[in-house]
């Protein structure tokens, strides 16, 4: 019951700060930007002009898979950034402003506090991802060719698992830092580091969660789901759970000063 109270409060707060409106819109823009510009590139060049007479321009139209992957990789960069920005203050802002002291003077369980906030922001991000990728899928289907509905839904679900981990990491930094900026900075550094390490040793740590997007790309090309994507997902969930547990323990032991 307490969990639902905090969860509902979080949803209301996100709603009143218009996050439920701008985050999906921004995600949709990121997702459709690249496929649309690629498709209309020749027309855009024609209209904007300034192409010297006689210059032949030959732009290969991307394949269906390539077009869809563009959306995913845009969200994999900018989407991650936005996800970090909207969640960087979830706990740290409340601790810094002092609301935390009032809220925690009630018998609030730290586990409820962390997980309710986490699930609320996850819902927002998952919704934004699903909405933006489905819109992009709609355009890709019209402009480039067909991708099955099952395939896009499965890809979106795995992609959400990847974002689950990112939000988990942000919650972890939230629990012991007061500065939102620092939370964002360290979260992004961590994700980048994970990505770099995983791509260097991609043949060894094939279960790395950051490889989920690579496996999704393969899925679009081949139509076959790699087995490794399951291991990566399990790893992502494991990192999420561990992050949330550590975040809870950190808050519990922290003295307000």
């Amino acid at each position: 019951m307490q969990w639902q109270t905090i969860f509902k409060k979080e949803l209301t707060e996100h709603w009143r700060s218009f996050k439920w409106i701008w985050v999906p819109i921004v995600f949709i823009i990121f997702a459709i930007m690249d496929p649309l510009t690629m498709y209309y590139f020749p027309i855009i060049m024609d209209t904007v002009g300034n192409v010297p007479e006689g210059a032949t321009m030959d732009f290969p139209t991307p394949s269906v898979a390539e077009a869809m992957i563009m959306s995913f990789s845009q969200l994999g960069l900018l989407g991650v950034l936005i996800a970090v920005v909207v969640s960087m203050g979830l706990v740290s802002k409340e601790v810094k402003s002092g609301v935390y002291e009032l809220v925690l003077s009630k018998p609030v369980s730290f586990t409820n506090y962390i997980t309710a906030k986490y699930v609320a922001i996850l819902m927002l991000i998952a919704f934004s991802l699903a909405a933006s990728l489905l819109v992009s899928w709609y355009y890709v289907n019209i402009l480039f060719g067909t991708i099955s509905f099952i395939q896009i839904v499965v890809s979106i679900l795995f992609f959400i698992v990847y974002f689950m981990m990112i939000l988990g990491i942000v919650m972890l930094f939230n629990s012991f830092l007061k500065s939102q900026g620092l939370v964002a900075f360290l979260s992004i550094i961590t994700v980048v580091a994970l990505n770099v390490v995983s791509s260097i040793y991609s043949h060894v740590i094939t279960w790395s969660p950051t490889l989920i997007s690579d496996y999704i790309n393969v899925y679009f090309y081949s139509g076959q789901l790699e087995t490794e994507i399951w291991f990566s997902s399990v790893a992502a969930v494991a990192i999420t759970v561990i992050s949330l547990i550590i975040a809870t323990i950190t808050l519990k032991n922290k003295a307000i000063d």
Binding site: G98, V99, E101, L102, S105
Partner: peptide, 13 residues
Amino acid sequence: RHYVGYLPQYPVF
């Protein structure tokens, strides 16, 4: 905390 009501020096809501 079940039995104590607390008002901090600078309450923030």
